[in-house]
Amino acid sequence: MRRKNDTAKTATPTHTATTPMPRSVASLARTNPFMLGLMGALGVLVALVIGGIVDQLATVLVYIGVAIFLALGLDPIVSFIERKLPRPAAVAIVVAAVVLAFVGILLAIVPILVEQISNLIEDGPKMVQDFMASAWFKDVSEQFGSTFDDAAQGVLSFIQDPGNILNISGGVFAVGAGIASGFTGVTIVLILTLYFMASLRSMKKVAARFVPAYQRDTFSGLLEDVSGAVGRYVMGQASLALVNGILSLIFLSIIQAPVPALLALIAFIGSMIPLVGTLAASIINSLICLIVSPVTALIAIIYYLIYMQIEAYVLSPRIMSKAVAVPGALVVIAAVAGGALGGILGALVAIPVAASIIIIVQKVVFPAQDRKKTPPAVTAP
């Protein structure tokens, strides 16, 4: 009996109702409201700092996103060349082709654009005088009286005033600064695209390392499906945009539209955004054709209406047959949301992002829901 009592005395003591327990965070917050308020204020401050950083880096994040999707779009070309050559040689060939294409676009567009702007500034007054001497202007002046003629004379006086020309040139300089900033962004995206394209496989391996080992195979398969589908989508949309740009260049040159190379570039960039972009670029190009004559603009409108029908019912089903089908409503919503967040680049990235989300839903969410054939068992209390 005594040995049992000794054993009980030497046993490890346990907490009883009178033994004080360590104070938890909740009890500390209840006893010290100041600490709770301080921690909440610090959390809000950290959130504001992170939001400000993201806002400042929004353009950079858009550049990175565009570069990643372009790299995914060029990866099928690299894989095709890799069947006959080593991957470094395939990457080098694609890099050289992309750089040459970019330099060719610059050499084709920039001199023509500068020349056209200079001619517009020099020939602006003469164009207004010729317009006022036309039969159409005289007929309109006779119908609307001296009000229309006074307005035209005011426009002519404004153009002929050197001070106003200086103001216009200041606006032109601002536009030129915007164009230079755009070219800088394109250059950054091009450099990032080439880097991501060369290191795409290593990037996928590093991304898989963040996933637990027992889920890496599933994650790697899903990542390959997403990257392959996005690459096919980007390549298909770029092919449609290239067709639209080449046909626009040929047609606009035939009808003698102003700056056909620039208008073809607008058509190419617009076609990268399906539905919304093609329509917007067609409207812009048709309005610019009004500089030549209303007949030229009408011909351009008819051409783009016919082309959009051919693209929707002939070209797009053939080129985009292997790509992910994105519903039209989702395309419009993604394009508008991407444009609001990141401008033109954001709209370009938004559609592949929507395609990626669709793939994840089809590959992960739907199968997980399909496996739930019976409701979960309810345990009795």
Rank of each mutant, 00 (worst) to 15 (best):
D55L: 12
V66Q: 09
L72D: 05
D75E: 15
L72M: 15
A58Q: 13
V66G: 03
S79G: 11
G52L: 11
G65H: 08
I53C: 04
Q56R: 07
A58P: 01
V49Q: 06
V78D: 08
S79L: 11
S79N: 10
V49N: 07
I68M: 13
A67Y: 12
I53S: 04
V49S: 09
V54W: 04
A67E: 05
V62W: 04
L61E: 01
Q56P: 04
A58H: 02
L61A: 15
L61Y: 09
V54H: 06
G65Y: 05
A58M: 11
G65W: 05
I77C: 01
L48H: 08
T59M: 01
I53V: 15
G73F: 13
L72W: 13
V60P: 01
G73S: 13
V60R: 04
A67N: 02
A71T: 04
V62L: 10
F69M: 15
T59K: 00
G51A: 15
I64Y: 04
T59G: 01
F69P: 01
L74V: 00
V49A: 14
D75N: 15
Y63K: 02
V60D: 02
L72Y: 04
V66K: 07
G52R: 05
Q56H: 07
L61G: 08
Q56T: 01
S79C: 10
D55R: 04
L48N: 03
A67I: 03
L57K: 00
D75R: 14
L74Y: 03
G51I: 07
G65V: 02
Y63C: 06
V78Y: 11
F69W: 08
V62G: 02
L70N: 08
I53G: 02
G51L: 11
